[in-house]
Write a protein that binds this DNA or RNA. Structure first.
Lengths: 129, 129
DNA sequence: TCTTGACCTTCCATCTGATGGAACCTCTAT
DNA sequence: ATAGAGGTTCCATCAGATGGAAGGTCAAGA
């Protein structure tokens, strides 16, 4: 399978697939012409990567998950730990964003948004000293 | 004022302050010894930047906001537009994260997290083909 | 006066996670 | 033979800093 087909079937851009090979996440074989020759298992891993990345797992998380995925004797606790840690990070990020949103929404609704120069948004950003 | 004091008073690391000078957000004067000599107005701008960045505004947003901030004749509508656009981005990001969180939380709670190799998390990540 | 240590300088490398583009090779169909 | 659709490598770039090396400066104490 050439990179184009793998790209279509995995949903990942060819650039990204080459990048993932570069950083050692996959090791496709090479044909005589120098083209990457992907096996079904490579495609499978790439699809796995695509979904894990879409869930916000970092590349290093993905590397660990792939290792665990290929380790038939791993404990599910190891995987769960990675996922739980990630869930905590997501919750933190959510809390931050929600606070940001609240502050910003308040400022936006306080701002007349007309042609006058008075602007509560700038006033707020500059007033805390 | 040297960079150390500005760092303390603005809450920004010295590295970051140098970086902000580098990309043209501030233009502190220089003392005879080559040290950066910050005016109160520089400190003010840096604090402004710190707060805007904390609200998730991009550096380019900040550049625009600073320009508007210094333009006594700007319309508040210009500022509001930047803030509203940013608010929309935050809402998108929030929706994404919430979906991620829901999926991940479901997987985590489905996973026994014991010594057995069966793991719904990995099963899910690998099953969608 | 000398020295120590805190503080300052620049410059270059590194991080995450790709992505864009140039220059060039290969395969397939006409 | 040639066009064009693929493939290849390598190098640069994006955001937004941050780490570290090598070296200059300043103030205080022995």
């Amino acid at each position: 399978m050439n990179i184009g087909e793998v790209s279509k079937r995995s949903g990942l851009p060819a650039k990204t697939i080459r990048y993932y090979e570069d950083i050692g996440l996959i090791q496709p074989h090479r044909s005589d012409n120098g083209y990457r020759a992907f096996a079904e298992s490579d495609l499978h891993k790439l699809a796995f990567l695509g979904r894990a990345r879409a869930l916000g797992f970092s590349i290093e998380d993905c590397r660990n998950l792939l290792t665990l995925y290929e380790d038939r004797s791993r404990a599910s606790a190891d995987v769960k730990q990675i996922a739980k840690t990630h869930l905590t990070r997501i919750d933190q990020k959510l809390a931050e964003l929600q606070e940001m949103r609240a502050t910003l929404a308040g400022l936006v609704s306080a701002c007349a948004g007309d042609n006058r120069p008075d602007c509560p948004i700038l006033a707020d950003l500059s007033s805390h000293d």
